[in-house]
Design a protein around this nucleic acid. Structure first.
Lengths: 144, 144
DNA sequence: AAAATAAAAGATAAAAAACTCTTTTTATAT
DNA sequence: ATATAAAAAGAGTTTTTTATCTTTTATTTT
């Protein structure tokens, strides 16, 4: 569904959001540990998320990654698009370049419904939604 | 969504089904050309589909791939599972091994609905459905 | 100003996926 | 029987993705 990078990105965004409640900054090391991701790899992803302005960062002592209030409005779709591009929106399930509404592949119409549901899900779920869920204690991000 | 191999597999299955209406056998070369797939690569995939008994093959002159009536009942799900395994059924969207109904990740419940739709789609669409659609002339498999 | 800390950037390495080439096996036709 | 055709199998190669290591730049603290 998503690339590994994208999975990490989503987890990292949620993790940073959780941690930056009390104005704290989170280092790459903490994030990597917190979401079981390879440190230097997640660093690259965080850089990209920063470039795309989905979260903020500061260098130097007491630096790290953090979120402003606006960043909490980021949707899953924003993250997925930032890291994996918009192939979920555009590409044919069978990888046919010519596939379209007017020239549909045999799976097109059936997949359209699934895709609609997926996109709706991606666009309606935001980081602050996830935050609330985690705060409730009924959801988890840890892998073990 | 699916691996490249899996996309090819689906296209190949549909292509062979189309061609084996009149008892004909189709060579790897024809299939490769017909679905714009690299010849030796699709050959491997066809081998695997054969091993899993989703289609039939014969060696030698006038040999090639073909389908028996029963093979037309193959669902998209059968093909996807044969090539990509059942990660669509089992894996967490965020790649969390510990994610489950009892221990859900923040995306779990929302994704569950999407997944349900996807699986329904995969299981209810068969090769013969695609065949009929292609026969109607309103659907296409060619890439250009 | 100097030392320390942490992200940014760049370069390299390992693993997986996609693709290619060669040889072997099996069936058919002559 | 022999030659031929086509898949099966095996052994690479290339490309992409994932992961690691090193150097540079920015910020803070002393």
């Amino acid at each position: 569904m998503f690339s590994k990078s994208c999975e990490y990105a989503i987890k990292a965004m949620i993790f940073v959001a959780q941690k930056s409640k009390e104005e704290a900054r989170v280092s790459v090391k903490e994030i990597a540990k917190g979401i079981n991701a390879p440190e230097h790899f997640i660093a690259k992803i965080l850089q990209e998320l920063g470039r795309k302005n989905l979260l903020q960062s500061m260098k130097g002592p007491n630096g790290g990654f953090f979120m402003e209030k606006a960043d909490l409005k980021t949707s899953l779709s924003d993250i997925v698009t930032a890291i994996d591009g918009n192939k979920i929106y555009n590409d044919c399930v069978l990888g046919l370049k010519a596939c379209s509404e007017k020239n549909p592949c045999p799976v097109h119409n059936e997949y359209k419904e699934v895709k609609r549901g997926l996109i709706r899900m991606l666009e309606s779920n935001t980081i602050s939604d996830f935050n609330e869920r985690l705060n409730s204690g009924n959801f988890f991000l840890k892998n073990n």
